[in-house]
């Protein structure tokens, strides 16, 4: 598989930016809104957006079970921001009825850095992504408060009041970041995920 087909869950959020970043990273990228479209992809990106909305639409359009099943079968998935929340086994400060895919054994706190006036840009170090520090954009972003034994912490904020906060993790074929590499034009995180999908 030289050019993996990667879907972007296209129910709501910054789908176009992820499609562009994946294409730039060498994937055949396409939107996924229906179970049949999910069947055709080798990996899936859950974009930034509003996690409560995405969670609702996943149920309404009957995508929960097929996505859970693909994750259990080892499909690579990358979630940014709302996508990270959707991949967490436990969410703090979410809605009671909000449900993710229970993919990564971690506890994330929604809107952890504050409201939009607190949204920020800051440098992040990511293990396994070559080329030095990563300039990250955080928008009403979550952070990770706890990770289970099988979860590798690959990124933390390197400066300022949020220093040391966990903002990127990986568990097997599942990858999640609090920030939005799709907004900054730096292709390294998407390249890392496409490589993960290619070799999975």
């Amino acid at each position: 598989m030289s050019r993996p087909t990667i879907g972007v869950l296209a129910l709501q959020g910054d789908v176009r930016e992820h499609l562009a970043a994946l294409t730039g990273a060498g994937a055949d990228a396409r939107p996924v809104r229906r179970p049949g479209e999910l069947d055709a992809v080798d990996g899936l990106v859950i974009p930034g957006g509003e996690s409560t909305t995405i969670s609702k639409l996943v149920d309404i359009f009957e995508l929960r079970e097929p996505i859970d099943k693909r994750i259990a079968d080892g499909m690579p998935v990358y979630g940014s921001c709302a996508g990270m929340i959707m991949l967490a086994t436990e969410v703090l400060d979410g809605r009671a009825d909000q449900r993710g895919f229970a993919g990564i054994d971690m506890t994330v706190r929604r809107n952890a850095f504050g409201r939009q006036v607190d949204s920020f840009e800051a440098p992040v170090e990511i293990t396994g992504v070559p080329g030095g520090g990563f300039h990250a954009v955080f928008i009403r972003a979550p952070w990770v408060e706890r990770v289970g034994a099988g979860v590798e912490v690959i990124g933390t904020v390197t400066g300022g009041p949020a220093a040391e906060r966990i903002v990127a993790v990986r568990q097997g074929n599942l990858l999640a970041t609090s920030f939005h590499p799709e907004l900054t034009g730096d292709p390294r995180v998407h390249a890392y995920f496409v490589e993960l999908a290619r070799t999975a």
Partner: peptide, 25 residues
């Protein structure tokens, strides 16, 4: 300044990016 290691709030990217997250909604 956005060259150091300190986080910066209120940038055009953060403001416009917030709207990107609302798309399709």
């Amino acid at each position: 300044s956005n060259t150091g290691s300190a986080p910066v709030v209120g940038t055009a990217r953060v403001k416009r990016g917030m709207a990107e997250m609302l798309k399709g909604g």
